[in-house]
Design a protein around this nucleic acid. Structure first.
Lengths: 332, 332
DNA sequence: TTGTAAGCGTTATCAT
DNA sequence: ATGATAACGCTTACAA
């Protein structure tokens, strides 16, 4: 910068002023400085800028997993919208470990990032307190925190569960099983709750024999079918709270000789890319990932100005494909 | 930091000294300073540290796509190893656009990141010159650049192609088709070349009628089968250069009434999570993503010290699953 | 409109 | 062993 100044025959403050627009600078000197800048090929040092002006143009993104399609969607779209707004993303995979989580957040705070977006932070983590104390804007995805005044964007999981139940019932099913995520996670409980409500609304009673608490992993879909299909009467449809478990269920159902969807209908959740590639392609409930990411970024940026607690709830949509159909005749 | 100093009754240089170990500081004062630090809950400002000491502990990771399982693997493992080494990752999705690419690299340089890892940078991009001029350590994944003295880690794609051919031949196939990636990409050509060599080594001649140049997307797998199965004699096996195209091919083959693997064997490439979940599960060639990421990070860090051109070539491995079997009797 | 100078929070070079 | 102090590259009153 000093070089630019001497090259252009002005002081460094003038250089700074042409760099930061909205300063009144003589057209002539502006020209000279701009020429000097491109002649020297000067690039401002963002660390120094950040140190002085207290903005880093960095957003931290904290996720519990990376090898998982739904988080991949999140990372993809958050990066995209952040980039459009002039921010860069530093990403932290906490691997579910509260300690890793804390270390990462601490690193973000020491770097004075402009904001933090996190998804499914662990229950026992103290990061809320850290963030609160640092007074850094933050947005939570997939989970609401009453205590902190923290923006959040979540899916209407309860309604999504209803949608699943209503769809399966409309197809004619009444013997419906479900594989949930871990029930100590709020969104699993919500989806389950909505699912039961949806059944009840049509007068179908749900028996907990038809419930399997999974782990969101492929294998638990297999386990679920082993348990739920242990003895007749068999369900004619199954709703899994994510696509990977649905695929596990399909795998085991096919292994046992059931045809999908003629004998059993399978409905997933998440609409991961693989769901469209399955044979038959998997019917599923789709989350509006792109919209969620956009809201997260917008809330983060806006929150800096206003500071009002905001909570955005978005709705899931049904994506009917090939794994769902009417139940076999004579079974109902 | 000033606060810590006054609290402990010492000067800020002493505080700095206890922060940066390997300085000789009196045990007593060290104690006092450490107490002050935790009393005030002081956290060093990494921006200031970076400005002064010229290290940021940031690694930039540049990829052309994010919504793609193989890049997801890369991001996951690079983040993991970088974290273990004390670095954070800022991620940039260039979406294949040279301009986005350049803007991102420029932003990294202005932030004085400690290194840049990039995968499949576009041909016409000028980022090599940018990186070279900035003298920032960088490593390229999936591609070698002769011009720049740049570390690289690549897959032995040629050998991977051979492995595919040899496996299919060993199963008894001789009518083998292949779906490549875009042939203007080096790794597609290498896989194709190795594949042909593998066939030739067993005296099987490859006819370009059996070649379909795909795009690495699902749809091009479907297109490939439409073209390759337009008229008899039909291939009894097909090797796709990634799993998504293999799945597309499966989809279309099943639609046409072929059984997999009884009528047609399908072999993919990448070993994405979905490949194990397919029904039948997809045989594939696996890339050592974790090892590649570890090498990339190691090369980046080490390169700072030494500065010798390094190039690591890793080998793929066969993952036989359910979509490959002997060809149907009477066809051979 | 432009220049001077102080300061952002560190580290490193001097002295002491 | 510790303390002043300059410097890193930038922004911003304040002065001119």
């Amino acid at each position: 910068m000093k070089d630019v100044a001497t090259f252009a025959g002005v002081s460094i403050s003038t250089v700074s002023r042409v760099l930061n627009k909205h300063y009144r600078v003589d057209e002539g000197t502006r020209k000279k400085v701009e020429e000097a800048i491109s002649a020297i090929n000067y690039r401002p040092n963002l660390m120094a800028q950040g140190l002085r002006s207290k903005v880093s143009n960095i957003i931290g993104l904290v996720v519990p997993h990376l090898m998982n399609e739904s988080f991949m969607y999140l990372v993809n779209y958050v990066e995209k919208y952040a980039r459009e707004k002039g921010y860069i993303i530093v990403i932290g995979n906490t691997e579910g470990e509260p300690e890793t989580e804390e270390r990462f957040i601490d690193s973000l705070l020491r770097r004075h990032v402009d904001g933090i977006i996190f998804s499914r932070v662990s229950d026992k983590s103290r990061i809320l307190r850290l963030i609160d104390k640092a007074k850094i804007p933050a947005v939570s995805i997939d989970r609401i925190f009453d205590q902190a005044d923290l923006a959040a964007v979540t899916l209407n999981n309860r309604n999504a569960g209803r949608i699943a139940a209503e769809y399966l019932i409309k197809l004619g099913h009444s013997e419906i099983a479900t594989i949930t995520g871990p029930l100590n996670i709020g969104l699993s409980r919500d989806r389950y709750l909505g699912f039961c409500e949806g059944l009840a609304a049509s007068g179908v009673r749900f028996d907990t024999d038809r419930l399997f608490e999974g782990s969101f992993y492929f294998e638990s879909g297999i386990e679920a079918v082993k348990t739920l299909w242990a003895a007749p009467p068999y369900p004619t449809a199954i709703f899994a709270q994510n696509d990977m478990m649905a695929m596990g269920a399909m795998k085991e159902l096919v292994r046992r000789g059931f045809r999908i969807p003629q004998d059993v209908s399978v409905l997933g959740f998440d609409n991961i890319p693989a769901s469209a590639m399955m044979i038959p392609s998997l019917s599923t409930i789709s989350q509006p990932y792109e919209e969620m990411a956009r809201w997260a970024v917008d809330l983060l940026i806006q929150e800096k100005a206003e500071n009002n607690q905001k909570h955005v709830i978005l709705d899931a949509t049904l994506v009917p494909r090939e794994t769902t159909a009417a139940p076999p005749i004579g079974v109902v």
